[in-house]
């Protein structure tokens, strides 16, 4: 018996295949539908100034996303997301995956915060019928924006103990700098990327991590200084 289980067709769906094999690069019909007819994107921010805001990415790296949530506490005391509005700067898969996420979060009366916090990019991809492999890490950022917005909710409703920080992750693979180091730098007063780099040298060996550093900077600034 072959001990290696061959990859299923489903598992390969999101893969980039050789250009000689058709379709490899291109998007599924679901992706195209959400790209050409995006659901729930926010046109005009005026009415959502009081909504809970989450941000992720930077336009310099090619993808940036903002998410606005409305959260209601039902009579049963459960907090549910009733509205998910978004804006995305990015390619087709970034737009489609945010659109799909907005549908997933708000369908069937909306997810509870607990459920929403568990959402992962893989689930969004599954609903989209797969994405080209190299698109995944850069364009499926919606779940992070969602978590960032939920943290905003916790902060504004004074449930700071519930704020979830993704901890102990290596950000700069070359210099082995973790998100803790970034957090520390922010606490020590670094409030720009330049100041963080001055303290940690993050990104000098692995510039690809800079967008993530910017994101962490924003997160910790919000968390500790509320701006």
């Amino acid at each position: 018996m072959n001990p290696i289980t061959p990859a299923t067709t489903d598992a390969r769906k999101g893969d980039v295949v050789a250009p000689t094999k058709e379709k490899g690069w291109f998007y599924t019909d679901t992706v195209k539908d959400h790209f050409f007819h995006p659901k729930n994107f926010l046109d005009g921010e005026e009415d959502y100034k009081d909504a809970y805001l989450g941000m992720v990415g930077s336009p310099a790296c090619g993808d940036a996303m903002k998410v606005w949530l409305r959260i209601n506490k039902g009579t049963d005391g459960v907090e549910r997301i009733t509205e998910f509005k978004w804006k995305t700067f990015g390619c087709a898969s970034a737009i489609a995956s945010t659109s799909m996420l907005s549908v997933m979060v708000t369908e069937n009366e909306g997810l509870t915060l607990e459920e929403a916090l568990k959402l992962r990019p893989q689930q969004i991809m599954e609903r989209l019928g797969g994405l080209p492999n190299r698109k995944v890490h850069c364009s499926v950022l919606g779940d992070k924006a969602l978590r960032s917005a939920i943290n905003d909710y916790y902060r504004k409703t004074e449930q700071t103990d519930k704020i979830i920080v993704e901890q102990g992750r290596i950000i700069d693979k070359v210099l082995k700098i973790t998100d803790h180091d970034i957090e520390e730098a922010v606490l020590e007063g670094a409030d720009t990327l330049e100041k963080i780099q001055h303290k940690t040298k993050v990104g000098t060996g692995d510039p690809s991590c800079i967008p993530e550093v910017e994101q962490l900077l924003r997160f910790y600034k919000e968390k500790y200084f509320g701006s």
């Binding site: 050409f36 336009p59 970034a94 737009i95």
Partner: peptide, 13 residues
Amino acid sequence: DIEGEAAMLYLDA
């Protein structure tokens, strides 16, 4: 304020 691949695909359509 917009990303090229998205614009390219809208033009393709």
